[in-house]
């Protein structure tokens, strides 16, 4: 037996932490779209909430601190869809390059 309690990083209940940061923000379109993709892919049986969480938890504490909520969500949605066989990493890579080539801003990078 060790003297650690076996908890993973995301199991935060009761751990010491600083004051609650009260700042909020209005969700941007890209964040709402990621939320919608998660719900719709869930409805279509392409990912589960458990699958979403597994990837988020496996991303580790550093990712939790470094990336924003929906940045981590799209990473997890993407990983789940690849694992489900919806598309390959190569297809994603090709599409991401195509997106970036359209323009330097989120608005310009849309296909419309």
């Amino acid at each position: 037996m060790t003297d650690t309690d076996g908890r993973r990083w995301h199991d935060m209940g009761g751990q010491p932490a600083g004051p609650v940061a009260m700042e909020g923000h209005d969700f941007a379109l890209w964040e709402k779209r990621i939320d919608a993709l998660m719900v719709l892919c869930g409805n279509k049986g392409l990912l589960t909430v458990d699958g979403l969480r597994r990837v988020l938890e496996d991303m580790g504490e550093e990712a939790f601190e470094k990336y924003s909520y929906y940045e981590r969500w799209i990473a997890s949605v993407n990983q789940n869809l690849i694992e489900h066989g919806v598309y390959s990493p190569e297809e994603l890579g090709t599409k991401m390059l195509e997106v970036a080539a359209r323009g330097a801003t989120y608005g310009e990078a849309q296909n419309d």
Binding site: W30, L37, I74, A75, N78, L92, A100, Y106, Q110
Partner: peptide, 20 residues
């Protein structure tokens, strides 16, 4: 706004959405 520089994760969101 949508005229801020495209981030890696936004690029991924657009790509995933378009593939689907």
């Amino acid at each position: 706004d949508n005229d801020t520089p495209l981030t890696y994760w936004q690029q991924m969101e657009i790509a995933v959405r378009e593939i689907l």
